[in-house]
Structures are given as structure tokens and as C-alpha cells.
Write a protein that binds this DNA or RNA. Structure first.
Lengths: 338, 338
DNA sequence: CCTGGCACTCTTCCCATACGAGTGCCAGCC
DNA sequence: GGCTGGCACTCGTATGGGAAGAGTGCCAGG
């Protein structure tokens, strides 16, 4: 087991390295931190930390830098989440309150996160599966053409065109609209399939085909839109990544464009609080030199989607975690209000 | 005036530089192109071209690279638009035809453009101003809460929540819905304000306030959403930009995040055909080392939005212009069909 | 267990040199 | 007049050898 002081040394190394972006040596450490021991002692501690795999040297005559394992220990044991200051919290709230619709909320959230953390921000749109139906609307655009509009409690709106097998009267449409809403309004999306199962039976045989078509489009929408959308921002912050540019940044940009990858990444974080995945803990190869800090957010107690940031493993974890947590909290509030 | 051969020399320089990314010298030119003259002659021509400002030397003992002015001449006079091959055209069509809704069309277009040109692709959503109204829907979500849904002929859907000053009966709502649609359906967005101007007069005094509120929300939507949305893709291609990385790429990424900047950029291109803005021709400073190739697209004869790519000034102009033009054409077709 | 001292290892920086690519110019030739 | 070969010149880049500096590991002593 590592002694208390060795942990302090590790913490100091992480903090200094995050600050300076340069390998940190024993002498610099004792100067900048009150460890109460000499550089020589620190050197011994460093050697031990290196044996355990928490830190490494880029080359023989250089200082140490934390490994992924070192950051992991730092995040788990050595540092808390740095809470936002009151002015920061006010600023977050003010900025988000100006949003006019869901798109705007998401867009503002991305901007805000990117600015606060100076990293790449990723915000997932509220998921359909975990939401409830506010309203389903059917519009006859032509005799045999219906537009299906789905409104969720999180303000999300999805629409689909339905080509009906037969013309569908306005009265039947109104009937279907009423029956559909009375069954699914306020219910969870996951329950919808069973709730509408026997709905065609209530209609005249001639309309049943159309009703079935509409319903199956509705169910399709639930499934399709399940591959959720997300918004990304702050990619310009990638330029602060490191010195050996193109090689580091390219795979990250590629990964960011693969929404599937990002969604999987966010989806994997099951933790109810802030989740941190460091370097190689990320399954995707392109993100092996990055850390992902994410958290769920939602209008009620339950998370309906995730948001987070992607940055270099050398990042200010306490600050980033604090910012991510705070933003998620306020977004949740905004969603609950609207 | 420049002689015919000098123009050929300029063309050769542009082509070689685009290919190799390195300053091109007189000897290499005569070897790779059948100019029929010796390097010494080419040197004289180069000196003349440099005097005129079409090419420049990075340093005394290096080859020449084209200036913005040189690229401009190349684009205007020396090169045409390279048409896509038949297989390429088929691939474009196939790829776009799989789209299920407008979002998907735009997303696929971005991907396609980025892949074809190996550059950053930008696609603007079809504009509201130049579209016509397909349908306006009003949904009573609560006694004094109405959702306004606007559907355009390009498939775009916008929704807004309206908080009414007074409860609004279902009958009145149906009345308003019917009157509204009979007036604006099939009409251009720009005409809507005058078309609905006197609509409140037809209602009972007690409903007038609500009708006005709904209408003003509708008009707001037209104005607000006029600041159009766009989708960007292929940012990973920025890594192929140049050797002096962070400095070049950073302002570009920043500009790309400022949608306002991009929209202005696309908006400035009035040309009915493919527009090319080279280097400093772009008003925005961050894009001074890039060229923007854009073109309008639309379902009918008229352009409803723009799309294009952003890349280094050192790009394959004929190929890029061909790809941009072809994609715009097929997107137009897809929109017209749906 | 901590500390000061010391030898050792590398990387980085700097400078000087050599090399080579490319130019500009000139005299001569068609 | 325009093209060509030749030649001197410029200047960036590659190469190599120190010298400097940072940092380490280890050891003997407190």
C-alpha cells in the first residue's frame, strides 16, 4: 500500500503536470508544494510510484508524468469535485434561461460547457425511450397522406410522413387521434407498443389498414430515433491539445464525427454521478489519449440523456467534473420548467 | 497581357503545387509538363508572373507557389469544372436516395461532400423565406397553451409553444386553424405577414388577444428561424491542411463554430452557378487561408439554400467545383421528389 | 527513514559547415 | 525578338559536435 505522503506526491505531480504541461521533477515539486521533505526523498517516492505504474518518464533524464492509472487514482481518491462558485452558477443559469426551444437549450448547453471547460463539449438530446408522450398529432396533408407529429415531455418533436394504403376520412382521423392520445398521453415510450396493440380492432375494416400503417410508423419512429442525436461544440479547443499535433488530433476529430461512437461512449457510463473514463479506458482507439467526463441529466429525478466533455487525459479533473455536474443540474431544471 | 504560354506555366504551377504541396521550380515544371521550352525560359515567365502578383516565393531559393490572385486567374480562365464520372454520379444518387427525412438528407449530403472532396463540408438547411407553407397546425396542449407547428414544402418542420393570454376553446382553435391554412397554405413565407394581418378581426373580441398572440408567434418563427441552421462535417480533413498546424487550423475551427460567419459567407455568394471565394476574398479573417466553394440548391429552379466546402486555398478547384455542383443537383432532385 | 552529495544519462540548444535546390542574369544562338 | 545553356549567388535544410542543463539513481551518513 502506498503511504500517505506518496499519495500526496502523486497528487502534486498531477496538479503540476496539468498546470504546466511539462514533466515534473523532484526539485520543482518540493519548491511548489509544502511536502516537508527534500527532493531526494521525493525521488524515492517517485521511484516507488513508477514501480506501481502510476507515473512514467518520457525519457531517462526527464521528469515524471502521470499514467492513465495515475490519473485514475487521482480522480478516485485524491481529488474531489470542485464546486462552481456562486457567480459561475449564476452565469450558467442566466445563459441557459434565455433558450426558446429544445434545440436552443441543447445548443446553449454545448456552448456553455465548451467555454467553461475549454474542451470539446458533447450533449445528447433527451432520449425518447426514457421520456413520456405529451401528445401525438395527425394531420391530413392529402386524402391518403398523413403527417405524424410526436411531442415528448422534454419538448422534443419528431415528425414522419405516412402514405396510407387507402384514403382516410377526416372523421376517422379525428377518431384515431383521440383514441391514440387517450391511450398514450403521459405514458412512457417503452409502453407505447403494448398500449396501441389492439387499436385497429376498434375501426371499420376499411380503415384498419391505414390505422395499422400509422401505428407502425409511430413504432418505427420510436425505434429509429432511439439512435439518438447529439450536438458537439468547442472543437477549436482541440488545438490546445498537445505539441505533436496532427497525429493526436486527427483520430479525435474522426471519433467525434462518428456519432455512434460517442453515443456508445456516453451510454457506457452507468454511474449515477459524474463518470470519468481515462485514456485507454475508452474502448474507441481514437480516444485513447483523451478522457471523457460525462453525467446524466434529466427533468426529474431520472436521467433522460447524457452530456459531457472530451479532453486530453491531462485535464483539470476536479474543475471539469464540477462544471459538467453543474451544467447538467441546471439543464435539468430548465427542462423541468418548460 | 500575359502570353498564352505564361498562362500555361501558371496552370502547371497550380496543378503541381496542388498535387505535391511543395513549391515548384522551373526544372520540375519542364520535366512534368510538355511545355516545349527550357527551364531558363520558364524562369523568365515565372519572373513575369511574379511581377504581376500571380505567384510568389516563400524564400529566395525556393520554388514558386500561387498567390490568391493566381488561383483566381486559374479558376476563372484556366480550368473548367471537372464533371463527375458516371459511377460517381450513380454513387451520389444511391447514397442520397436512402434518406428518410430532411435531417437525414442534410446529414447524408454533408457526409457525401466531405468524402468526395476530402474537405470540410457545409450544408445549409432549406431556408424558410424562400419556401412555401405546406401546413400550419395548432394543438391545444392545455386550455391556455397551444403548440404551433409549421410545415414547409421542403419538409422542414418548426414548432413553438404559445402561452395564450386567455383560455381558448377547441372550436375557436379549429376555426383559427382552418382560416389560417386557407390563407397561407401554398404561399411563400415572405407573404405570410400581410396575409394574416386582418385575421384577428374575424374573431370574437374575447379571442382576439389569443389569436394575435398565436399570429405574432408565427411571425416570430419566420424571422427567428431565418437565421438558418446548418450542418458541418468532415472536420477531420482539416488535419490535411498544412504543416504549420495549430496556427492555421485554430481560426478555421473557430470560424466553423460561428454559424453566423458561415451563413454570411454562404449568403454572399450571389452567383447562380458555383461560387469560389479564395483566401483573402473571404471577409472573415480566420478563413483567409481557406477557399470556399459553394452553390445554391433547391427543389425547383430556384435555390432554397446553399451548400459547399471549406478547404485550403491549395485545393483541387476543378474537382471540388464538380463535386459540389453534382451534389447540389442531386440533393435538389431528392427534395423535389419527397 | 530522511538527507545531501555526486556521478551519470539524456535531451535540448547552438553553432558551424556542407549541401543542394532554385534563382537571376548574361552572352550567344536561331 | 525570343529561347537556351552556363554560371555565380542565395538561402534553407540537413549534419555533426560540443556544451549546458535538468533530472535521475544511488550511497553514505545523520
Amino acid at each position: 500500500m502506498l503511504s500517505e505522503r506518496r499519495l500526496q506526491v502523486l497528487r502534486a505531480i498531477v496538479q503540476d503536470y496539468v498546470g504546466t504541461e511539462e514533466p515534473v521533477g523532484s526539485k520543482a515539486l518540493t519548491e511548489r508544494h509544502n511536502l516537508g521533505v527534500s527532493p531526494a526523498t521525493v525521488r524515492n517516492d517517485m521511484a516507488a510510484l513508477e514501480d506501481e505504474g502510476f507515473i512514467a518518464q518520457p525519457h531517462t533524464s526527464a521528469g515524471r508524468i502521470p499514467t492513465d492509472k495515475g490519473y485514475r487514482l487521482f480522480v478516485d481518491k485524491l481529488a474531489g469535485v470542485k464546486p462552481m462558485t456562486a457567480p459561475e452558477r449564476r452565469a450558467i443559469q442566466n445563459f441557459l434561461e434565455g433558450a426558446v426551444d429544445l434545440d436552443d437549450v441543447v445548443a446553449r448547453t454545448v456552448r456553455l460547457l465548451a467555454q467553461l471547460t475549454r474542451q470539446v463539449a458533447v450533449v445528447q438530446y433527451p432520449s425518447l425511450t426514457r421520456s413520456t408522450v405529451r401528445h401525438v398529432e395527425l394531420l391530413a396533408l392529402a386524402p391518403a397522406r398523413v403527417m405524424l407529429v410526436l411531442i415528448t415531455d422534454t419538448g422534443r418533436v419528431e415528425q414522419r410522413m405516412v402514405d396510407c394504403p387507402a384514403p382516410f376520412g377526416e372523421a376517422s382521423l379525428a377518431d384515431l387521434r383521440a383514441r391514440l392520445n387517450s391511450r398514450v398521453a403521459g405514458r412512457r415510450f417503452t409502453d407505447v407498443p403494448t398500449l396501441v396493440e389492439d387499436l385497429p380492432d376498434a375501426f371499420d375494416p376499411e380503415d384498419r389498414g391505414t390505422v395499422s400503417t400509422v401505428l407502425s410508423t409511430l413504432l418505427e419512429t420510436l425505434v429509429e430515433e432511439n439512435e439518438e442525436r447529439l450536438m458537439i461544440g468547442g472543437t477549436a479547443n482541440l488545438t490546445r491539445f498537445g505539441h505533436d499535433f496532427p497525429l493526436t488530433i486527427r483520430p479525435v476529430l474522426e471519433a467525434l464525427e462518428e456519432q455512434v461512437v460517442l453515443l456508445k461512449l456516453l451510454g457506457e457510463a452507468k454511474d449515477p454521478g459524474v463518470t470519468v473514463r481515462i485514456g485507454h479506458e475508452n474502448a474507441h482507439e481514437g480516444l485513447n489519449s483523451t478522457s471523457v467526463v460525462s453525467v446524466g441529466y434529466g427533468s426529474g429525478g431520472e436521467a433522460v440523456a447524457k452530456l459531457g466533455v472530451v479532453g486530453p487525459t491531462r485535464m483539470d479533473y476536479p474543475g471539469t467534473m464540477g462544471a459538467v455536474r453543474a451544467v447538467a443540474r441546471y439543464v435539468g431544471q430548465i427542462l423541468a420548467e418548460s
